[in-house]
Design a binder for these strands. Sequence first.
DNA 1: TCTGGGGTCCTAGGACCC
DNA 2: TCTGGGGTCCTAGGACCC
Length: 370
Amino acid sequence: VSPGPTGRTGPGGPVLHVDLDEFVAAVEIRRRPELAGLPVVVGGRGDPTERGVVATASYAAREHGVGSGMPLRVAARKCPDAVFLAADHAAYDAASVEVMDTVRAMTWGGEPVVLEVLGWDEAFVAPRPSAVAAGGLGDPVGFAESVRAAVLGATGLHCSVGVGDNKLQAKLATSFGKPRGVGRLVSEDWATVMGPQGVDALWGIGPGWARRLGELGIRTVADLGAADVHHLADVLGPSTGPWLRRMGRGVDTSPVDDTPRVAVSHGHETTFQVDLETLDEVHAGLAELVARAREDVLAEGRAVARVGLKIRFVPFTTFTRIRKLPEPSTDAEVLLTAAVSLLDRVPTTREDGSLRKVRLLGVRLEMTPP
DNA sequence: TCTGGGGTCCTAGGACCC
DNA sequence: TCTGGGGTCCTAGGACCC
C-alpha cells in the first residue's frame, strides 16, 4: 500500500471518475474463469435459502432482473441457475489496492495524479494544480482511455471512466460510459443532458429528497437549479438547501483530495438466521459484536468516545441508541457494559413481559479524533 | 419473496447555562 | 397574566452511498 503524495485540486481542471465494472463479481470471475459469462450473485453467506441480500450481481445475472439489495431468495427465484457466492472482503480489499495503486502511479501533464479513493471500486482522479497551470494536459478523454487500459493491463479488471469539469459531473458521466467505456459530461452540456432528468438522477438525491422536493413542485434537475435559494434554505436547511441548488446547476467546487480518510466509527451488525428469543442470547450477541468492533478500533490505535446500539425486532421495527462514555476507553468490559445498558432505553418486552423477538443486533463504536 | 452490512453527514429537539 | 434569546452539548434518527 503506497499512499501517494498529498495533494488536492482546486476548481478549474478536468476531473475523472473511475468506477470498476461489476467489481465484486469481476474479482470472483477473475479467480474462477469458468464463471465468465455466467450469472454470478454475491451476497450473504452464499446460500440463497438464508436471510440476506444481493451485494453485487454480474451483468449476466442482471439480465435476469437480479439487482443489488434484492433478497437472495428473490434472486434465486428470478435466476435459479445463478452461482451464489459468499462475500470475500479480504479478496476485494486486495483487488481494490491493486487497482488504486495502478492509477496512483500514473502521471498527467508530467506530474503524479491526485487520487481520491471512494470505496472498493471508485475513485476520483485529477491533475495537480501545477500541471493544470502549466497546460499540456492533453485531451481528458484520451487520458481516461489510458486509465482504462492501465487498469485492465495491470489487474485484468475492466472499468468505466467519467470525464467532467468537477466531481459531480465526472461521477454522473461514468454511467454514460458503462460498461468498459468513457463518458463525458461538462458544464456546457449540463442543462441539455441533465436538465430534463428527475432530481434523483443526481448524486446524493435519493427517494427521500426526491419526495420532499416534489412536494415543493421541484421535479427535474432544471427545476432544482432554478429554485429560489432562500426558500430552499428555509424549508430544507441552511446548508442542504443551497447545496441542492448548486447540484441542480451542475456546480461542485469540492476538491479532489487524496488526504487519507480518518475513520469516524467502526461497527458490526448481524441479522440472525433464527430470531433471538432470550436475553442471554441478546447479551451473547452483543458481546460478539462489541469484540469485533473493538478489534477494528484497536487496530487503529484509537479510543472509543461513544457506544451505539442498534436493535431490530420482528417484524422490522428498528431502534438505535447511543451513549457517550464518561471518558474515552478501549476496555472490553466498559464497552460491553455500555452496549448492554442501552437496551434499557429500548422497549424490549411485550405487554406480558416477554422479550420481543430480535431479528438484528448492531454495535457501533465512535472514536475520539486521532 | 420480506426487507444486508459498512459507513458518513445532517437536522431537530431537549437539557442546560448565562 | 404566560413563559427572552443565544450558545453548546447530547441524542435519535433520517437520508444517502457503496
